[in-house]
Design a protein around this nucleic acid. Sequence first.
DNA 1: TAGATTTTGTTTATTTTTGATCAAATCAAC
DNA 2: GTTGATTTGATCAAAAATAAACAAAATCTA
Lengths: 250, 250
Amino acid sequence: MNFQNRKQLILQTVDERGSVDVRELADLLQTSEMTVRRDLVQLAASGLLYRTRGGAMKVSMATDSLRFEHKAAVNAERKDYICQLAAQEIREGDVIFMDCGSTVFRLCQFIRNKRITVVTNSLPVVAELMSSKVTVNLVGGEVDKERQAVHGLIAEEHIARYRANRAFMGVDGISLEHGLSANSEKEASIAMAIARQTDKVYLLCDSSKLETNKYLYFAPLSLFDVLITDTETKPDVVSAYQKAGVTLIH
Amino acid sequence: MNFQNRKQLILQTVDERGSVDVRELADLLQTSEMTVRRDLVQLAASGLLYRTRGGAMKVSMATDSLRFEHKAAVNAERKDYICQLAAQEIREGDVIFMDCGSTVFRLCQFIRNKRITVVTNSLPVVAELMSSKVTVNLVGGEVDKERQAVHGLIAEEHIARYRANRAFMGVDGISLEHGLSANSEKEASIAMAIARQTDKVYLLCDSSKLETNKYLYFAPLSLFDVLITDTETKPDVVSAYQKAGVTLIH
DNA sequence: TAGATTTTGTTTATTTTTGATCAAATCAAC
DNA sequence: GTTGATTTGATCAAAAATAAACAAAATCTA
């Protein structure tokens, strides 16, 4: 294992995991920590990664604001579980929509190596898939800095130009009584626009959001085809949704 | 087993495995390590593989493309000088185009606090302006991962929907004889699309690019209105451009 | 076939890379 | 701030890879 090979592996690892530490790498590469450090210094010098104390990070847009990993980290385990289920639904060659939810964002890590096309209005999703095999199509229009996503009329028109096999969307609230609800009109109208252009819509929704309502009701349950949630969903809620005709995976 | 046969086998092995080491090859080819080394030197000299210490790699695996952040840092001082001049041209309320060049990227830091709207196809620009007062409009379409920007037909159509006071663009080469030239068709066509929709086009171009030509000539000097460059531009070049009718700031 | 030429293999010297040690720098918790 | 733990970079010796020098083998040629 020489420098060139190690370099390959290090960059690949950093790219996949976002960040690594020296000890991990030394273990992975079967070499000393000193050597790993020397490699990292070189790679950082050529701008291929960002050196941190104890390890290294992806350089991409990592230094900038285009990261909402903090937010995405809430209920991370549940969300990852949901996203693994979601990723299994995806076939090679699919064209999929991904919206700007924090759950949907975590789907990125599971689709990095698939040969698919992702159409999205989420900037963190774009940043994350920048170094993947996925073909990315970015929805154009005005940037909402708070949500780190593109919204508005132009964005909806852009979406209307594409047709996708599947869409993966988040939602702020969902209830049997009122259907889907959101915290903002922007997110609601993007969700509607995406659903119109998609064969099969998957709603990714961790159990904490089931049977909650937000201020804006924007669509009935029939907007989506499949609800993917986690195992902590109470059995009575599951059966109530199934009785209401919802296809539910958990 | 002569050199021709070994060469075949070596290239095939490198191609299949991505990388090989001298010992493996000596074993595989039933020859000494010294001979293998000599073969590798020859093959590397003719560019058929990439020589590493201890072995060799596929050329494609060894090329570490310079990342955008790094590229932006080359000639940073000159670029910053140019961008300061450019920023002075901007008025409150302006709508401006910014393309995906590394010089243009550095303009971001000087416009953070202006109340303007920026339309751009550059993802680093978006990331940089995410935490600013600027209203950002992102051009939609297929993402070019290498350039960290959006290009293509859809992008050009998106641009055609907007009208801007000013555009700030980079260019790979510029010469009095041949006009503007680029390294890729993608960048050239975006530049054309932007220029069509803009009242006043500023070309940001550090002195190292003046009087150089890249492979694709795509527009005459008349495409832009003002050329902004740095103080290291030679006086005779300056006067030649002015004589040719170019408005030049430096 | 003898002699010249090229290629290959072995030995040796040189260079590069690596890993261990340890003082200095940095960080985190108090 | 001070302390204590961790990380780092410098130094140096060991290991590995390389290049150089030369001898042996193979190939070519007259």
